[in-house]
Design a protein around this nucleic acid. Structure first.
Lengths: 203, 203
DNA sequence: AATGAGGGATGACAAATGTCATGCGCTAGC
DNA sequence: GCTAGCGCATGACATTTGTCATCCCTCATT
C-alpha cells in the first residue's frame, strides 16, 4: 500500500519537479498538486492523503495556516513542511500548528523520500541545527501589534503610511516601532524588520 | 544524441528534483549538478555540456556572472536562466551576459524540457510578459555608486554604517541615497531599496 | 577648449524618526 | 482588589534623515 501524498508549493516548476522526484519512489504516490494553501485541506480529504507536503511561503493561505487546516480536517494525515528559509520561528509555529516534520530546501534530494516515509510512520523529522536555533531564538518577543506595525514598516513606507494602514496615530506607531527596535536589537526600523523577518517572527 | 545538461541551483532539493524531472526525458542527460556558480564554467567544459541551466540567486558567483563565464569558456554551450523572481533587470542583464533563455520558476513543469530543447537548438526562450516589462523598466537609472550605497542601505544600517562600509563621508552617502530615492521614486531609502531590488537593479 | 556626467565632499536647513515620560482603559493573574 | 502587561494616545525632545546649493577633480565627448 503506497503512501498517498499531496504537494503544495507556489512555484510550479519546483512543485512539478518534486512530484517527479517522489513519483519515482515505488512506495509513494502523488495524488494532488496545489499552487496555494487554500485548497489543501479539501484536497487531503478528497484524495484521502496520508501525507501533505507544504511550502511555508505561499500566496493565499500560508503553509502554517494550511497545516493547521489539514490537521483539523484530517487528523490522520501527517504534515511535512518544506521551506526555503530555515527560520527558527517558522519551525516553532509549524510544530505548534501540528506539523510532524520540517525540512529546508537545501537538504539533499535523497533524504526527501525518507523524510516522507518517516513522517508517514508517525515519526518527527526536524533539521537538528534548526531545532537548536529554535530553542534560543524561537519565540517572538514582539507583541501582536508590534509585529503588525513592524510588518507594515518592512516595505519601506513612512510612519504616516503605517499609521494609516494600521489605523493608529503616528505617535503610537513610533512607540511600537521603538519597542520593536529595542526588543530585536535593531538600530533602525529597517534593521529591526530584517531581524524579525530572519527569525520568522513576521508573517 | 542526447542533450548534455548542467544544472546549478543553490537549493539541493530543487536541484535534485529538477534533475529528476529532466532526467525522465529520453533526449536529455544531466551530466552535472552544482550548488553554486563558481564551478559552473569548469563543469561545462569538463563534461562538454550543450546547455547550462542556472539559477540567478546563488551564493559565491551569481547566475548572471556564471552565465558570462560559461559563454567565455565554452561559446557553443547555451545558457538557460531559471529564476524565482521575474525581475526585468535580471532578464536584461542575463541576455547581455549571453543567456539564450530566461524562465521563472512558476512556469508549468511540462514546459521546462521544451525550453531546454529550444535553447539547445539556438532559439531564444523568454517569458513574453517579462519581456514587455523589461522594455519599460529594464534599465537601471542608478549609477554604480548609487547602486552600491543603496545595496548597503538595504539591510537597514544607519548612514554611519553605510559610510563606513563604502568608505565615504556621511554627507556623500546621504547625497547618493537622495539621488537614488529621486530616481526610483521611493520616499524613504528603504522604499527605494525595495523598488530597486524588485526591478533587479541591485546585486 | 569647452561641456557634461560622475565621484567625492561640505554646510545649512527642514522634515522625519527615535526616545521618553506620562496618561487612560482593559484584561488576566495573584 | 491589586498589579502587571498590553493597546492606544499625547507631547516634548534630541538625532537622524532627506534636500539643496555649492564646490573640486577627473575623464570622455564634442
Amino acid at each position: 500500500m503506497s503512501i498517498r501524498l499531496v504537494i503544495a508549493d507556489d512555484q510550479a516548476l519546483v512543485r512539478g519537479a518534486l512530484a517527479a522526484l517522489l513519483g519515482l519512489e515505488p512506495d509513494i504516490e502523488v495524488v494532488a498538486e496545489l499552487g496555494d494553501g487554500t485548497g489543501v485541506a479539501a484536497a487531503v480529504v478528497e484524495h484521502r492523503a496520508d501525507v501533505a507536503m507544504l511550502d511555508v511561503e505561499m500566496p493565499g493561505l500560508d503553509g502554517i495556516s494550511a497545516a493547521a487546516a489539514v490537521r483539523r480536517a484530517a487528523p490522520s494525515c501527517r504534515v511535512l513542511m518544506v521551506t526555503t528559509f530555515g527560520r527558527p520561528g517558522y519551525l516553532k509555529r509549524a510544530m505548534q500548528a501540528g506539523a510532524s516534520g520540517f525540512v529546508v530546501k537545501d537538504t539533499p534530494a535523497r533524504q526527501l523520500a525518507e523524510a516522507v516515509r518517516r513522517v508517514h510512520q508517525g515519526l518527527r523529522v526536524v533539521d537538528p541545527v534548526l531545532a537548536a536555533e529554535s530553542l534560543t531564538a524561537g519565540d517572538s518577543p514582539l507583541t501582536e501589534r508590534e509585529g503588525e506595525v513592524l510588518k507594515a514598516a518592512s516595505d519601506g513606507g513612512t510612519v504616516a503610511d503605517i499609521a494609516k494602514s494600521a489605523m493608529l496615530s503616528e505617535g503610537t506607531v513610533r512607540n511600537y516601532l521603538s519597542a520593536a527596535m529595542a526588543k530585536t536589537g535593531g538600530r533602525t526600523r529597517a534593521e529591526a524588520a530584517r531581524i524579525a523577518e530572519d527569525n520568522g517572527w513576521l508573517l
